[in-house]
Every structure is written in structure tokens, then in C-alpha cells.
Design a protein around this nucleic acid. Structure first.
Length: 509
RNA sequence: GCUCCCAUCGUCUAGUCUGGCCUAGGACGCCAGGUUUUCAUCCUGGUAACAGGGGUUCAAAUCCCCUUGGGAGUACCA
């Protein structure tokens, strides 16, 4: 009875995966790992029309960036492959035929126009449902309204056909969902869904049920947009005689747009000021570029942490989790039912938190490429010192440059607001005095420069703010930043004095 | 339209199943104070919610019903 827990993440390669998709993958992964089970990555590419070049690679890259590694699937294969539905041959057709044979499904020949007509007609009649179902199928072109020889002839002659599910007229279908509890559906409300398309491919409904069964999936964890089609799947399990091996269902609450209404969609993109994709994605058709969390400077640990808390919580007050901790604490029954709005501000905070729990060395390694890009080749220890100084004021490594460029090059402009406020007539004279003072200091340390300059200010009864801010202005071009005397020390005597001189000249004019 | 789902601070949420310990807790944000030559960080404090109405009960955020609001699905897409 203690069978292995097996879950799958089954995206379709129709474009980049967005946050919601990654969260579904994450929850599957956490659940599997928690139970010592298997996480399977299956690609649902039964819709050839929507296939997008590069999307599958994008999916696997995104998951591995997050640290979500599949035990079986398109990447590493496994005992139940292939894991790409388009490669699973005639598996689906066989089961579809079996359903037809047993009277649970039937062939249909209606054209798109005829279907549209039927729906239009029902709409005009103010019918409650406009569906291909037990009420309407008797008037359509299908095996239920034709005699068997005609059906045979049509199929033999190569006429396109689909196979539809013959939904029961009047029965209740019970879904036991881990998250949502018991949900009852009326079969009369269900559509005679197409199971097998005229292009020879199964639809999602058929394919996912068959594959889940064949791949021995024990738990189906997916977004709640699937709830309404679950009764179809339940019917299929029964008609295929797999009722005794039904997987457990757990539907995840939706992720909503940060503002406005509706679920977060791929389209929301950068116009909302935050990425909706894990990795940057360039649409191969339009060339349109969508930003990703990775490229925006988020750490994967932070990203995963944010996602984990969207719809799930541990029940205590901990909110920072490593993947290990998530695996240990995760459980399906602590998933909420209501949709979660994504909060970009909190996401930033998480990244800030993670950034400040890394070592200077780690951050230095991440900063270095940016510096190289600027054409700089600074001393490693120096960079590490710089990082130590600016790290706490940054949310992202990419913030470092803006906050520390003056450690690497002389400022080119001076903040006019600070000039206006702090630069007085006597400022050049004072700064010239300071230059002299600095020149005389032998051990050019933070302590020494600070002590001497402050003594000078006091002796001359000057204002600290006035003097130090204008001094800062000449050194880094702005009125903000880390400790001034630390900067002076790191710049060194020569460079500091040079900058003060230049500052005086340039601001003077 | 029809079917299904959801409803606690601005946001993520704890508490709801197993009514009383809830004058509703935490986090982000915001505001104030402290630290700092400055800005940021950091620390401290504060702001702010049980959608509304009926029941049930000694007692309801917690159970039931209705209303309202929000969401999802309704394809030869997944």
C-alpha cells in the first residue's frame, strides 16, 4: 500500500513559463521531495499549432535556475518515457478506439462552421448551455446519428473526424480535492469534449489522463483553472476502467495581477514594473523581449522563497526558507483556497534580505563582471571592501555600480541640488585648507583623517554638515553614500586631494 | 448566460475544519522616533482588516442561509 509518490509538472511549450507555472512546478517538486517520491517533467505538446520554438528549453532552463530538478522527464528520460506527448506514438489512439468500442466515445464529422452554427442557434434560443452534449449530439453529424456503414465509409475514405466523449446525461460526478474539498458536478452540464483531434493528436483531456495513469502518477497538483475540466478526466478514468487507481487531486489557487483584476497572465509583462517570467524571454516571432527575474538581479533562492509563500504558508511565523526547509515543511493541506496577488515590493525585500546574507566574497564575484563590462580591472580585495560598504543599501547586485562607481572613477558631474544647498562662498577656501591638512597626514587612515578634519572644523567654528557635505560632493559628486572618511581612506591621499581640487575648479565656474 | 470556486489590515497571510485562549498575530508597504556629516541600511514604535444582512448558540472571524463583490471555466488550447 505504500506506493511511491509520483507527481508531474506538465507544461505545454507554447511560450515562456510565468510565475504561476513555476509555482505549480515548485509545489509539485516540494511535495515529491518531502515524500521521498519522484518529480516528473512531461511536455504536453499535442497542439502543433501553438508550438513555440525554444519554449521547452526555456521551461527546463527556468526550472533548473530555480533548483527544481526532475527525476524523470524530457531531460533525463526514465522508465515511463517518452515524456514528450508528441513522441508517444499511437498510445492515445488505441485508448480512444477502446473508448469508442465500449460505447463511451463516438466519432464525429462536424465542420467548424456547423459547430459554430449549432452554438449560435442555441444562443439565440436563449438556451442555458450552448454545448455539444446529450441534448444536441442527436442533431449533429456523428456516429450516433449515422448508421455504422456510413461511419465506416467516411473514416475509410479519409474524411476528417474527431472522437468525442459521450458524457452521461444525468449523474453527479464527485471530485475530492485536497485543497478545495468535495466538489460535485452535474454531468448534464458537461460538454462532449473532443478527446482525439482530426490531426491525429489527442487533446489535453485524453492525453493527460492516459499519461498520468501510464506514468503511475499518484498526485495531480495543478492550477485551479483545471477544476472545471476535472469531471471530464474523472469520467475518463472510469470509462478506461482505472477508477481504482485514481490519482489524488490538489488544485492550486490562482496568482492574481498585482493591481486591477484577473489572473496574472503572460501578457502583463513589464508594463506592471516587475517581471512575470523567471528568465528573460524573447518571442521568436515578434522579437519582443520580456524581462526575467534572473536578469533583473533576483537570486533564485529569493525567487523560490517568494513563490513558495504564494498560496502556501507553514502556519508559524517563519518566512525565510531555503529549499531544504521548504521540502521539510511543505504540505498540501496548508495551501489556501483564495487567489493570491503578487506583491513586487515584498519580492524586492526578499532579495535584499538574501543579498545581505551572502558573504562579501560571493557578492564580489557577482559584481566583478559588471566592473569588467565597464572596462575596469580593479584589485579584488579593493572590490571586496567596496562591496562590504555598499551591500546593505542594495536590493540587487546591479545596484552596486550606482552606489559605488566613485570608488573606481572620479565623478563627472556634481549634484546641483547639493551645490545649491551646501556650496557657499567660503567653501573653496575651506576645502583648500582641508587639502593642506590632508597632505600633512602621514598615516592616511579613516581615523586620522576624520580626527584631523573634524578638529579643523571645530577650531574654525564651522558647521559639520556644511563642510562635510561639500567635501563629499567633490569626492563622489553627490550628497549621499557611505561613510565619508572611509571613502577618503580607500581613495587614498593622492586621489582624494586630486578630486577635491577638481571639484573646486569645476563647481566654481 | 450557464457551471464551479473564493471572501481577515493596501498586499501576502495566521486564526476557520475541532466555536470561547482574538480588545484578531506576523511580514511587506506606509508613517513617526532613534542611529548617521548625508542618503540608505538598521533598531524601536505606530497605522490598518473579520464585505453586508439574517440565523444557530450562553458564546461566531470561526457553523448555516441570503445578498454583494471577486475569480475561473465554458475551443479540433493547454
Amino acid at each position: 500500500m505504500d506506493q511511491e509518490i509520483r507527481v508531474r509538472f506538465a507544461p505545454s511549450p507554447t511560450g515562456p513559463l510565468h510565475i504561476g507555472g513555476v509555482r505549480t512546478a515548485l509545489f509539485n517538486y516540494l511535495f515529491a521531495k518531502r515524500a521521498n517520491g519522484k518529480f516528473i517533467l512531461r511536455i504536453e505538446d499535442t497542439d502543433q499549432n501553438r508550438y513555440v520554438e525554444g519554449a521547452e528549453k526555456y521551461i527546463t532552463d527556468s526550472l533548473s535556475w530555480c533548483g527544481i530538478i526532475s527525476d524523470e522527464g524530457v531531460e533525463g528520460g526514465g522508465p515511463y518515457g517518452p515524456y514528450r506527448q508528441s513522441e508517444r506514438g499511437d498510445i492515445y489512439k488505441k485508448f480512444a478506439d477502446q473508448l469508442v468500442e465500449n460505447g463511451y466515445a463516438y466519432h464525429a464529422f462536424d465542420s467548424q462552421e456547423e459547430l459554430d452554427q449549432m452554438r449560435e442557434k442555441l444562443k439565440n434560443q436563449k438556451s442555458e448551455v450552448q454545448q455539444y452534449n446529450f441534448l444536441t449530439r442527436g442533431e449533429m453529424k456523428n456516429a450516433l446519428t449515422m448508421d455504422t456503414t456510413e461511419v465506416e465509409e467516411r473514416i475509410q475514405s479519409g474524411q476528417p473526424y474527431v472522437i468525442r466523449l459521450k458524457t452521461p446525461e444525468n449523474e453527479k460526478i464527485h471530485l475530492k480535492d485536497i485543497v478545495y474539498g468535495d466538489i460535485v458536478f452535474e454531468s448534464s452540464q458537461l460538454d462532449d469534449k473532443i478527446l482525439f483531434k482530426s490531426d491525429g493528436m489527442p487533446t489535453y483531456h485524453l492525453a493527460n489522463v492516459i499519461d498520468d495513469h501510464l506514468m503511475k502518477i499518484t498526485h495531480v497538483i495543478r492550477g485551479s483553472e483545471w477544476i472545471n475540466s476535472t469531471p471530464i478526466h474523472l469520467l475518463l478514468y472510469r470509462f478506461l476502467d482505472w477508477d481504482n487507481e485514481l490519482p489524488v487531486f490538489a488544485h492550486l489557487p490562482l496568482i492574481l495581477k498585482p493591481s486591477g483584476q484577473g489572473k496574472l497572465s503572460k501578457r502583463d509583462g513589464d508594463q506592471m514594473g516587475f517581471p512575470v517570467f523567471p528568465l528573460q524571454w524573447q518571442n521568436p516571432q515578434t522579437g519582443e523581449l520580456n524581462p526575467g527575474y534572473k536578469e533583473s538581479g533576483y537570486f533564485p533562492e529569493a525567487f523560490v522563497n517568494i513563490l513558495a509563500l504564494l498560496g502556501w504558508n507553514p502556519g508559524d511565523e517563519q518566512e525565510v526558507f531555503s529549499m531544504e526547509e521548504l521540502i521539510n515543511k511543505f504540505s498540501l493541506d496548508r495551501i489556501g483556497k483564495s487567489g493570491a496577488r503578487f506583491d513586487p515590493d515584498k519580492a524586492k525585500w526578499f532579495n535584499h534580505y538574501y543579498l545581505n546574507h551572502k558573504t562579501n566574497k560571493e557578492l564580489t564575484e557577482k559584481y566583478l563582471p559588471i566592473l569588467y563590462d565597464k572596462g575596469l580591472n580593479p584589485d579584488l580585495d579593493y572590490v571586496e571592501e567596496v562591496v562590504a560598504l555598499v551591500r546593505e543599501r542594495a536590493n540587487f547586485v546591479s545596484d552596486f555600480w550606482e552606489q559605488s562607481f566613485f570608488f573606481f572613477k572620479e565623478p563627472e558631474r556634481y549634484d546641483p541640488k547639493v551645490i545649491k544647498k551646501k556650496w557657499k562662498e567660503n567653501t573653496p577656501a575651506i576645502l583648500n585648507d582641508i587639502i593642506k591638512i590632508l597632505e600633512d597626514i602621514r598615516t592616511f587612515s579613516e581615523e586620522n583623517t576624520e580626527k584631523t578634519v573634524k578638529t579643523y572644523i571645530q577650531d574654525n567654528e564651522l558647521s559639520f554638515g556644511q563642510v562635510l557635505n561639500s567635501l563629499r560632493l567633490t569626492l563622489l559628486g553627490s550628497g549621499t553614500g557611505p561613510s565619508l572618511f572611509k571613502i577618503i581612506e580607500m581613495l587614498g591621499k593622492e586621489e582624494s586631494i586630486k578630486r577635491i581640487k577638481h571639484g573646486i575648479e569645476r563647481i566654481q565656474k
